[in-house]
Amino acid sequence: MNVVLITIISLGVLGALAAIILYFVAQKFKVFEDPRIDQVEEALPAANCGGCGFPGCRAFAEAMVKADDISDLNCPVGGADTMSATAAILGKEVAAADPMVAVVRCNGTCENRPRITEYDGATSCTIASSLYGGDTGCSNGCLGLGECVDACDFNAMYMDEKTGLPVIIEDNCVSCGACVTACPKDIIELRKKGPKSRRIFVSCINTDKGGAAKKACSAACIGCKKCQKICPFDAIEVENNLAYIDYNKCKLCRKCVAECPTNAIHMVNFPPPKPKVEKPVEEKAE
């Protein structure tokens, strides 16, 4: 009986002592933190993808709370809804940013772009690209080793085994830009998603002269400038033998798509209702 009593008392005293010490330590080392940081973080998607340019959602929340002007800050994953919700917490206004989506700018499928060498190194695009231009005649195009797919945290990419190219699952893509950073060839670009997800882009980044580009890949942009001439909105510019469509100027008229002799300009999600239209369609603009 005595033993039990002594045990209870001594443990009780020890516990109380520890509690008192902890209390004072906690008081002494208390760090003041803006409670709004927690609130903002709560509203964020908690994906910690780094798409905003900060190491994680918490860091982004801190930056939002600190910043006077939050117009430069954007959470691409959460999109407009999240941004207005967080802005509301902070009592600020935010302009809705256009939703973006990753776009693979290479159409060098096995058929379009014959392999001329065989790569036999570690499965890494970065290693392959530091070794040489790639296993095809095009030294700008996709190496097909899937570093972008590995980088994607949102299950929004896969390698198409038939074409050897990565494919983006639009519904899953949150435009965090991880794949853009991962690609050593800068093939993937974040572009405006467009109304009804319709958009037009040049699916090539080859800067070789026309002949060489065409020889390496039948779907290459040969820099012929036909698209540039036909574009009524000055949205297309050809530089270094390569056309680029400015998505802010493009009005989706699709004239260039029909004009391109190598079908290098792609349009997606346009009617006739097919999920993805690869070939240009003979059809006037809406």
Partner: peptide, 12 residues
Amino acid sequence: RPLLDYIRLGKG
């Protein structure tokens, strides 16, 4: 294993 491939990547 392609040890040097990755080491080269790391060195870069």
